[in-house]
Design a protein around this nucleic acid. Structure first.
Length: 193
DNA sequence: CCTGCGATTTGCT
DNA sequence: GCAAATCGCAGGC
């Protein structure tokens, strides 16, 4: 009986859309809080909606070209968004974590998100989950696949079946809207809908 | 439940 | 200067 195991760096060193799909059902941990990943999107330097489009490096997107398993956090409007870098070092590719189903530290999440916020609304958005877990630029550029990582992912006791997973174009972008790189589990297939 | 809109900060042209 | 990988809330159905 082995405890759920951390995802290692090899997990992230694969095509970004594969990693995005396989992250569904995995657990994300930071501090005392954790949640099950139920929505992701893939981004790759070969398409224009990606911050690393055409492989152009800027101060902001620098972590996207680092080792697989690196954390890339950026700010949009007033919130932060969490990404996990994929593929080979030097290739700009990352998975945006868009939603979690809260598992551990729910009271702490509610403290940060607001006392009146319902469980299902604690982390059902890329900015919301960063606020719930208190993720910000402090974690930008760190690794999420080392034994010592504060932010890390773990295997889950179950996985979602293909039938439970929806694949659609990505949300909130104006370019490359034809690419179906959003992967999510609808509320009806989750533990608490 | 779904759609629309404004807030407001940062990064890059 | 402008666009943005968003959110919350108002208002309609």
């Amino acid at each position: 009986m082995s405890a759920p195991q951390r995802l290692n760096c090899d997990f992230f060193a694969r095509p970004v859309e594969t990693v995005a799909r396989e992250l569904l059902g995995k657990n994300l941990h930071f501090g005392a809080c954790s949640g099950r990943i139920v929505e992701t999107e893939a981004y790759h330097e070969s398409e224009p909606s990606c911050h690393a489009w055409q492989g152009k490096k800027t101060p902001r997107n620098r972590p996207m070209f680092a080792e697989p398993g690196t954390v890339y956090i950026y700010r949009i409007h007033q919130v932060f968004c969490l990404n996990l870098v994929c593929e080979a070092p030097g290739t700009g590719a990352a998975v945006l974590i868009r939603a979690l189903e809260p598992l551990q530290g729910i009271a702490e999440m509610r403290q940060r998100r607001g006392e009146k916020v319902k469980d299902r609304d604690l982390a059902n958005g890329p900015g919301k989950l960063c606020q719930a877990l208190s993720l910000d630029l402090d974690q930008n550029g760190v690794s999420a696949c080392l034994p010592s990582s504060r932010l890390y992912l773990s295997e889950s006791l179950f996985s979602y079946s293909e039938a439970e997973i929806q694949i659609t174009p990505r949300i909130g972008i104006s370019k490359a809207q034809e690419i179906p790189w959003r992967f999510f589990v609808p509320p009806t297939s989750r533990a608490f809908p």
